[in-house]
Write a protein that binds this DNA or RNA. Structure first.
Lengths: 358, 358
DNA sequence: ATCCCTTATTCAAACGTTTGAATTAATATC
DNA sequence: GATATTAATTCAAACGTTTGAATAAGGGAT
């Protein structure tokens, strides 16, 4: 397995070399090595002779030449809207892990949540003949949905945003269910005066989570006092929910409305809330329980560690790859893989930031 | 006979199309559009005619065909040793941002700190004809250095680890200086009993930072009590410093040795330390000031926000790209760009976790 | 010998570029 | 008028594959 230090003229081994070595034509070698349709006629001895020689010479096919010939690049694009969002870490890991088991490699681009950058990158990726695209509109402001529409030409999977065009699959989580579960958790701990930090109205996930929260409230007969349900403003990027969480919580505390638990739109907002409590001399969870949403890596690092609704991000990444591959394969065969829409459950992860009401 | 059955009416525009349109040969078009050496002979009118037509038809060169011809892939690899390390976020942003201004696109791979995976990925990247490689051995256990040696064939830049082989540039930070500055900060705040959480011995940065700490201690005549200088064990990955920081700090507190400040190897260790204080009912910074190192995104999220030595990670990423491009360009011209070793300063970022000794 | 199957293998044309060398035409030099 | 020089453009080969069509080599059966 060790390669002796080859001298400089280390030309790569091509089909031609293998052909010359075995005294057979280039075509034959190609046919054998690809086990292509024609190979079923080939005599067994040629086949093994070629295979043996290929191995001996260390032949590896040139993906570039191959791409040129058959319009396959063995590459998929990954468009992240905001790569500094900690939400992406686990997701990327899942994508990368699944992808590398296949013949595909990812081109990861960070769009900075700008439509024009998206288009520029899309053009780049398109030129490179990417065979599929995974889109992660992790902080999709309004424009994003329109942006995505333009892409007819390549199989797509969207993660996190239920965006089901017929040629475009999506992987989402049950945001409403998550909202319900989160509130249920606080309720079961005995809390009744519960503050809510809703996400911005322009984010779909906000509306869904809020819907789930309302549903539980209604079903359980729990009154949600509008005075302690705050809504975030529209924010420029995902990371801003931290500051916004801080701001709203400070505000909340200054109104003197009592509450014993707080449900935050996401983990960053929850972290911001905890900071606010901290700064005002309150303690979490003693004075107030806090629950987040997402389970970003931060969540277990802050003090106290954060109870949250865990998104199965690695799984979502892997699943997006899987789905994308099906689309690609179908397209190769001239068919169309009908777009699917998969929704995953989120899971309550109890850490230290929530506690029973005394 | 012509082929009427056009499969895709959306056939991409090639040089041939532009040539046909302008009544000139393919070569000419290529020469004009590349402004290649031969183009200085071309008549101005042909040139503008071609350029105009190319624009009108929306010609874009096919990177794949181009790669095949001239062995350039316009692609660089980025090998991250541990992509879940929050240290990478800002770095990636810097790399990506700088790269996208050029003609290059990144293939980002996460090696999971395993030598064999590194080799497998390297092979993949090599096959893809990457023109350069950025290596981020962000938690390089012993083996890594050897691993890197094998790569003779492509321009390389290593980030974060002073690894100066003659064909390989590196971007590092002044770890020793950072250690010095960090301790100086605590000292200037009036702290004299200072605990230190040293990084694992097998990590180069640990040794350097410790050296800087010792230097300040000597210069300032500050005694560092060995009883409160702990050293981390060898750890499997970067994120483990959190737990290790927690563990060591708990231990530290149990020994009853008094100290008023703590200098942690990195931000995660500092976060672990803060958690430990928190769990034992101590308050940061009231009972003890804590300083970290790196300024990962977490640092401003934990409570209290973390005073730390900020690494200019975006800049390092951008700089690595810049350096890599010089290597690549030199190689294209048949020269060799002598490897350079750039060291950047780290900057003290005072937040809320450090405070003057009452 | 002719015809027709198989079976095993090769031809040759693409894919879209780049580029040293060749070609042509026009102009200057002797 | 012959020749060299220059300018403007094109030829043609190459990069390493893939693959439908063509070929060749063996049989039989008539």
């Amino acid at each position: 397995m060790t390669k002796p230090p080859q001298k400089h003229p280390r030309r790569t081994v091509t089909l031609r070399d293998v052909a010359r070595e075995t005294g057979v034509s280039i075509s034959t070698v190609s046919i054998v090595l690809n086990q292509s349709r024609l190979s079923k006629n080939l005599s067994v001895q040629t086949r093994i002779r070629v295979e043996e020689a290929a191995r001996r010479l260390g032949y590896t096919p040139d993906p570039v030449a191959r791409s040129l010939k058959n319009r396959h690049s063995q590459t998929v694009g990954v468009m992240i809207f905001d790569i500094t969002d900690p939400y992406c870490t686990r997701l990327l890991k899942g994508i990368e892990g699944a992808l590398v088991k296949t013949q595909f490699l990812p081109l990861i681009m960070s769009v900075q949540n700008k439509a024009d950058i998206f288009h520029r990158y899309w053009k780049l990726l398109h030129e490179r003949r990417i065979e599929g695209l995974i889109i992660v509109p992790n902080w999709a402001t309004l424009s994003a949905e329109k942006v995505i529409e333009g892409l007819q030409q390549v199989p797509c999977v969207v993660i996190g945003s239920a965006h089901s065009r017929d040629h475009m699959s999506c992987i989402t989580i049950d945001n409403a269910g998550g909202g319900t579960k989160a509130l249920a958790h606080l309720y079961e701990l005995g809390h009744r005066a519960i503050a809510v930090l809703r996400g911005p109205e322009n984010i779909l996930a906000s509306r869904l989570r809020w819907r789930g929260i309302q549903k539980f409230s209604k079903d359980a007969g729990l009154h949600l006092d509008p005075a302690i349900c705050m809504e975030m403003r529209a924010l420029p990027d995902a990371s801003s929910t931290f500051e916004e969480g801080y701001r709203l919580t400070s505000e909340l505390l200054s109104t003197q409305h009592p509450f014993t638990a707080l449900l935050a739109f996401d983990d960053l907002a929850a972290a911001g809330a905890i900071r606010a409590f901290h700064d005002l001399g309150r303690s979490v969870p003693r004075d107030c329980s806090v629950i987040g949403f997402d389970d970003i890596p931060h969540a277990q690092l802050i003090s106290p560690s954060l109870t949250t609704m865990r998104q199965p991000l690695e799984q979502m990444g892997a699943m997006s790859v899987e789905t994308l591959l099906m689309h690609i394969q179908a397209k190769d065969e001239g068919k169309i893989h009908k777009a699917v829409s998969q929704m995953l459950e989120v899971e309550l992860l109890v850490r230290r930031s929530t506690t029973p009401r005394e």
